[in-house]
Computed example of a mutant assay.
Amino acid sequence: MSASDYQRKLAARDKTIDVLKRRIAQEARQNHATPFAIMEQNVGLEKVVAHKTKELENERHELEKALLELRFTQTQLLQAQKMESIGQLAAGIAHEINTPTQYVSDNVGFVKGATVSLLKLLDAALLLADTARVKMADDPVMAEFDAALKRSKMDFLRRQIPGALDESLEGLGHIAKIVSAMKEFSHPSLDKKERVDIREVINTTVTVARNEWKYVAELETQFAENLQPVPCLRDMIGQAILNLVVNAAHAIADTIKEGVREKGRIIISTALDGEYMEIRVKDDGSGIPAAIRERIFDPFFTTKAVGKGTGQGLAIVYSTVVDKHNGRISCESEEGVGTTFILRLPLNSQNEE
C-alpha cells in the first residue's frame, strides 16, 4: 500500500470521527447532556444490565439447587416412610410365619428324636428276624417279611432320613433368621441415635441382601476384635450398607462370563481408626470410570439403564454418613479391578439419645 493510500485512509478516519463528534454534540444539545454524560449513562446502563444478568443467573442456579435438594429430601422422606411401612409389614409377617415355623421345627425335632429310637428298634427286629429265619426258613410269614424288607430299601432310608431331618431343621432355622433379620433391619430409629454393635447391623444387612449377591459373589465379613458400640441411626446405617452391597453385586454381575468367571468376591470389614469406626465394602467388580468418580454421590446421577437405577443409592449413603452422622465417606476404585467404599462413623455423637 502506497503513502497516498494511507493518507486517504487517515483522512477518511478523521472525517468519520468528526461526524461522530458532531452527532454526539448535537444529541447532547438536544438532550441537554454532555457527551461524557451520555457515555456515562451508556456505561452505567451496561453495568446495570450486567449486574441484573448476573443476579438472574445466580438466582437460576440457586433455584436449580433448591429444586434438586427438594427432590432429594422428598426421596429420603419417601424412603423413610417405605422403611417404616416395611417394618410394620415385617412385624406382621414375623408373627404369622414364626408361629407355624416354630411348631413345625418342634415337630421335626420330635420326629428326629423318634427316628433314633425307631432305628434302634429296627436293628433289634432285624436281629430277631435273623435268628427266626433259621427256624422258619420255609414259613411263608418269613418269606413275606423278607420281601417287605427288600421293598422298603431299608439301607437307603437308614442313610437318608437323619440327613433329611437335619436339613429340614436347618431350613426352618434359616426361615426364622431371615424373618428376624427383616424385622430388625426395617425397624425405624425415629431419628434417635443409639449405641449398636455394628457387627449385628452388618450381619443382618447381609442376610436381607442375600438374594442380591448369592448368585454372583462370595461374601465375607472381617470384624476387628476391639470394636466398640457405635452411636447411630441403626436403620439408616443398615440401609447405607445395603445400598453398597447391592451396588457391589451389580458391579460384579457386569463381569460374570460363563466359563470364564462364575463368581466375584465382596468383603465387608470393620476396624477402629482413632475416634472413628471404619467400615469398608470392597468388591472385585468392574470398577468406576475415572471420569465420573467425582459425581457418584450426586443425587439422581446414574450410569445404569432406564429402569435399572435412579441415582439415589449412593446419594442416600453420602447423606446418611455425612449429614446424619457427621462422618466421612470416600471411594477407591480402579476400572477392571474393583471398588472399595470407606465409611467412617464417629464413636462419639452429640446427638446421641
Rank of each mutant, 00 (worst) to 15 (best):
E59P: 01
E200C: 05
Q81H: 15
R151K: 08
D139V: 08
G309D: 03
I175A: 12
L343V: 07
A181R: 04
F156I: 06
S186T: 00
R60D: 05
L121M: 10
A181L: 07
A209N: 07
T101Y: 04
N107S: 11
A90C: 12
M1R: 11
I97M: 10
K153W: 08
A66Q: 10
F223E: 05
K9H: 06
Q7E: 13
M142L: 14
V321D: 03
G309P: 00
V179T: 11
Q239S: 15
M1P: 07
A91T: 12
G44L: 03
G264A: 15
I252M: 10
A164D: 13
A224P: 00
F185Q: 02
S330A: 15
L219Q: 09
L20D: 09
V216S: 03
A176C: 05
E64D: 11
N98A: 07
A315T: 05
Q76S: 11
I178D: 03
I256H: 10
R293I: 14
I279P: 01
M136D: 08
I292Y: 10
K54V: 13
E334T: 11
L68V: 10
E57Y: 06
I161W: 04
H174N: 04
A291Q: 13
V337Y: 00
F301C: 06
K54C: 09
E84G: 05
R13G: 00
I296F: 10
F36P: 01
H95I: 02
I316H: 04
D197E: 12
G287M: 01
G336M: 02
D130N: 03
Q88R: 14
V337H: 03
T205M: 11
G311S: 12
F145S: 05
S330C: 07
V337M: 04
T207L: 15
V49L: 12
M236A: 15
I296R: 01
